[in-house]
């Protein structure tokens, strides 16, 4: 029974970290579907989000929930700004160049964060309504921080699902990701779809950053967790929204189990080993469909 509880506990902490991977992966997937670009600066959106929330809560004294909402909105605006100023002019350039550009953006954002007075290179933390609270269920002890991540990710996915399913612009975005030219002919402003995609994905990054803060604390390098979200996105097929979340969960759980039951070192590379295995066996990911260029 004790072993069972231990495994359950490990899996649950894996699920909660997996949710974060999933959220970041979702950010990748949305942008990839719309523009075929992978945004390597997605992790830095988390950093920015976490630091903004930190300032809102610790310095300006906002309550957690307001701060979470405000951060998400601010990051969304930042994403929109980024798309307008930098990325829009690059439509049609080689994908690799744009990816490299997002890597440059990542460096820029991360180091800029370290230059802001009061943020710097130190590790910070802020209080949340879940801090130091636990739920007991028999032998099982769950921290609210982990549960909150799982619940809020779930809620966010429902909102996104409804958005893509029922709103006009959501359907337009799905259409544009299927076939940009046809969507443009149907009167969808593809530029607006791109802009919105970057907005949503940056907002998701910010949201994930705030959620993650109680677990990893706020630090300029917390965005490197984004590197683990790549395997998650690939696992899910890099074009599928549920795929991204499932991929994130698989990576999170494996990593968590590897951390407890495998020799030291395996935890950090478990995600990549899965990644390479999946790519060898099923290059299009678990949920992806293989597409061929028309000649």
């Amino acid at each position: 029974m004790e072993l069972f509880n231990e495994i359950l506990q490990t899996i649950l902490s894996g699920v909660s970290i997996g949710c974060i991977y999933g959220l970041v992966a979702l950010g990748f997937v949305l942008i990839f579907k719309a523009t075929e670009i992978i945004n390597f600066a997605q992790g830095e959106m988390m950093v920015l989000g976490a630091f903004i929330a930190l300032t809102l809560i610790n310095v300006l004294g906002f309550p957690y929930w307001i701060a979470l909402l405000l951060t998400t909105v601010l990051l969304g605006l930042f994403g929109m700004l980024l798309e307008r100023t930098v990325l829009r002019s690059l439509i049609g350039e080689p994908v690799f160049a744009i990816v490299m550009l997002t890597i440059g953006l990542g460096y820029f954002v991360r180091s800029s964060v370290s230059m802001v007075p009061g943020w710097g290179t130190d590790t910070h933390g802020f209080r949340t309504p879940f801090t130091d609270r636990v739920v007991r269920y028999g032998e099982l002890v769950l921290s609210w921080e982990q549960l909150a991540i799982i619940l809020m990710t779930g809620a966010l996915i429902l909102i996104l699902f409804a958005f893509f399913r029922f709103t006009r612009i959501g359907v337009a975005m799905r259409a544009a990701s299927q076939n940009q030219l046809a969507a443009a002919y149907m009167g969808i402003s593809v530029n607006r779809v791109f802009s919105l995609t970057w907005t949503i994905s940056a907002a998701l990054g910010g949201f994930a950053g705030v959620l993650l803060s109680p677990i990893t604390f706020v630090h300029m390098n917390m965005g490197f967790i984004g590197l683990k979200a790549f395997p998650a996105a690939v696992l899910g097929g890099f074009g599928s929204i549920p795929g991204a979340i499932v991929g994130g969960l698989i990576i999170g759980i494996t990593e968590s189990l590897a951390g407890v039951y495998l020799p030291v070192g395996w935890k950090d590379i478990a995600a990549y080993i899965i990644l390479i295995l999946v790519l060898i066996i099923r290059p299009q990911g678990l949920f992806g469909i293989q597409e061929k260029k028309k000649v």
Binding site: G104, L105, Y107, F108, R110, S111, S112, V113, S114, T121
Partner: peptide, 14 residues
């Protein structure tokens, strides 16, 4: 700032 080098590095790539 220690972050100056990476900022300029990133900026240069961009």
């Amino acid at each position: 700032q220690t972050g100056l080098d990476p900022v300029l590095y990133g900026l240069m790539i961009i």
